[in-house]
Design a protein around this nucleic acid. Structure first.
Lengths: 138, 138
DNA sequence: AATTTATCCTATAGGATTAGTAGGATAAAC
DNA sequence: GTTTATCCTACTAATCCTATAGGATAAATT
């Protein structure tokens, strides 16, 4: 299951991508438009800024804006920043690998192969979907 | 991320599927073989029995055994029982549908379409993989 | 310079979920 | 009737999720 944090983050990014102008958008505007708690959204946007997706401006006329073009932001990147690993188990994660403490030998684990299949299929989708794709769907 | 409950459940089912004989297998045997806490495994097997995957026998010589052939148990079914929805968000779940409180209109949600794609791709894998496939991979 | 506006940032609270444990009840076999 | 093994409810500790509080900082306006 996707956390609200990730879902809200994706919706906020989509909102910004739909604002074609470069003018910064205030948190409160996004929060109202997308029905997201203002303070929660604030912390999410902060995370996205630190991760390099967003720029910000303080003071009057300030707000957040995309640093890259929507077509150059893959959902997989956003997912990893907000949600963490795309894989279902750490032992098949490419970016967050961890050994399972219950498995003496990964190759003999009956679940391992399936988990790789699921990971690859999800990767294929998330890496090949951009923010632009999200807002261009009908 | 997959919970330990589901992972342990799949490993336990795989263990039972590998025991070709019909003789019941004790929890403690599986627990030792798969490095799973005995009491935790006990509760998992109980769930799987109530869901119709396993039969059990009490007393000496008792234990758990598969009720169906391994090839007739799809991982999707097991997943739903132990983990819950396969979908990443409730609003695209086929078996656990719930409306999102932040979305006035699902069709206008920028994330919705992507979530359906992910769901379908995962469904395709999990429904077409049987317990037999799990133990037959090399 | 003072005020307003909006982000920055740390800390924290409350609830839900997860992972596991305790311990007696029940039933089958010997 | 003793042993064996599942059955079942309840409980706990730890972690994670969602959200909030409240002041610090910086930019623009007056």
């Amino acid at each position: 299951m996707l956390s609200r944090k990730t879902k809200y983050g994706l919706k906020a990014l989509s909102y910004l991508a739909r604002c074609e102008e470069d003018a910064p958008v205030q948190i409160s505007v996004i929060s109202t438009a997308e029905n997201i708690s203002l303070k929660f959204l604030e912390s999410i946007l902060l995370t996205l800024r630190k991760a390099g997706f967003l720029g910000s401006k303080k003071g009057k006329g300030g707000g957040y804006y995309l640093l890259k073009e929507a077509k150059d932001i893959s959902i997989a990147e956003v997912y990893r920043v907000l949600e963490g690993p795309i894989a279902l188990v750490p032992c098949v994660s490419l970016n967050f690998y961890e050994k399972c403490d219950d498995c003496p030998d990964e190759d003999k684990c009956s679940v391992h192969g399936l988990m790789i299949q699921v990971r690859d299929s999800n990767l294929r989708i998330l890496e090949n979907t951009s923010l632009e794709d999200l807002i261009n769907k009908i």
